[in-house]
Design a protein around this nucleic acid. Sequence first.
DNA 1: AACTGTAATTTTGAATTCATAATTTAGTCA
DNA 2: TGACTAAATTATGAATTCAAAATTACAGTT
Lengths: 227, 227
Amino acid sequence: MTENSAIRIIPRKSLHEELVDRLQMLIITGELKPGSKVPEKELCAQFGVSRTPMREALKVVASDGLVRLEQNRGAWVAPLTISEVEEVFPILGVLEALSGELACQNITDEEIAAVRALHAQMIKSYESRDLEAYFSINQKIHRAILKAARNDTLTASCQALSLRMQRARYLANMSDDRWAAAVQEHEKIMEYLALRDGKHLAQTLLAHMRGKQASVTKWLISQGAQT
Amino acid sequence: MTENSAIRIIPRKSLHEELVDRLQMLIITGELKPGSKVPEKELCAQFGVSRTPMREALKVVASDGLVRLEQNRGAWVAPLTISEVEEVFPILGVLEALSGELACQNITDEEIAAVRALHAQMIKSYESRDLEAYFSINQKIHRAILKAARNDTLTASCQALSLRMQRARYLANMSDDRWAAAVQEHEKIMEYLALRDGKHLAQTLLAHMRGKQASVTKWLISQGAQT
DNA sequence: AACTGTAATTTTGAATTCATAATTTAGTCA
DNA sequence: TGACTAAATTATGAATTCAAAATTACAGTT
C-alpha cells in the first residue's frame, strides 16, 4: 500500500498550486471529513510528492479557511458550522449582487445568449430532476455572470468563499419547494440580465443567496451540525 | 553583511505566519517596490530563517495577490495598477456597506462610545493636519465597525483587500478638498452608526469608498502608474 | 563593437535530513 | 485492574541538500 498503488504524477502547473486544487477538492467532496485531521503523510504518498510542496499547499488552503493549522499539531479540516454559513452567505450575497450590477454594464449580446443556453440546459436538468447536472450548470451560470462583470478580484473572492459553502451544497439535498423556488429565481435572473437591469438583478441575486443560505442552514441543522 | 547585521529572531507564532505579516508590511510600506523581485535569499538572511518557511509565507502572500509567483523565476511584488484599484475598491465598498448594516444590528452602546472617542481623536488629527495619525485612527474606526459586525469572515475578507489598497493610501497624499470631504463623510458615518441606521450607514460607507477610490486613482495617474 | 553560442554560476523547486514537540506504548506500583 | 510515569515512537517544523532551470559571463566570429 505504501508504494505505487494510487500514485499519480502531476505535471501541469507548480506542484503546490496543483496540490492546492486537489486539497480543496478532497475537502469539498467530503473525502476529507470536517473536523478530521489532514493525513499529511498519506496524502504525500497518494500524490507522490514530498512534504515540502504539500505543506506549502496546506498553508495556502488554511489561509482560505478550509483547514486550520495548529502549532505542532498539524492541519485539521475546518468543520462546517452553522455560524460559518451565516457569516459567509451574506458576504457572497453582496458580492454576487455586485457581480450582477457590473455584468449588466459589461456583458455582450453573445454572452447573454450563452447564459441563456446554459439556463435552458439547467431547466432541462430540473425537469428531469438531475441534481448533479443542475448543480454543475448552475455553477456555470454564476461563473458566466462573474466573468461578464470583468473583475478578476471579484471572481477570485467569490470563488474562495463559494468553495467553503460548496461542501454543504454538495451534500445537501434541496427540498422540492426550495428547488422550485431556486428555478423561479433563476428565471428572474435570466430576465433581468437580458434587460441589463443591474439594480433588479442585484436584488434578485441577493435574494437567491438568502434562499440558498436558508436551505443549507436547514440541512445543517437536520444533520445536527455545530453552531 | 551576511552575518548578524540585521538578524532578528522571531518567536511568537509559527515562523511562516510571522513572515506573512512581515512580508505584507514590507510590501505595504513600499520597502519592497511594486514590480520588483522579492529577494528571497536576502530576506531569509535578514530574518534569520531558512528558505522553507519564507517560501511557505510567499505562497500565502501570493494567494492574497500581493506578490506573483512565476514558474522557476521566483516571486515578484505585484505592481499596483489603476485597473486593480478599480477592481478592488468597489468590492471593498459593498463589503464595508455590509459591515455597516451588520454593525448597526449588533453594536453595543459601549462600542459606539469607543468609536465616538476615536472619531474625536481623528478630528483632532485632521485639525492639526497630522496625516499619519489621521490614517492610523481612521483604520481603527473602520476596524471597530467591522468588529461590531460580528462576522470574522467579513473582517478577514476586508482586511485582505484593504492590504492591497493600503500601499496606495500609505503613499498617496490626499488633496485638501478630499481630506475635508472624507472628514465630512466620517461625521455622517458616526451619526448613522449612533442612530443604528444601517441602510444609511451602508450608503455612506459605499460613497466614502468611492471617494477614496477616486482619490487614489487620481494619485496613481499623477504617478504615471500602469493601467 | 555587436552578435551568437556555450560554459559557469546562481536561483529555484522539491526531496531529504534533523531537532524538537506531541503522542503512544510499555511498565510500575497502588 | 486501573492510574500514573517514563521510555519509545511518531509527527511536526524548519534547515539542509540536491537536481533542474534560468541567468550571467565570456569566448569566438563577423
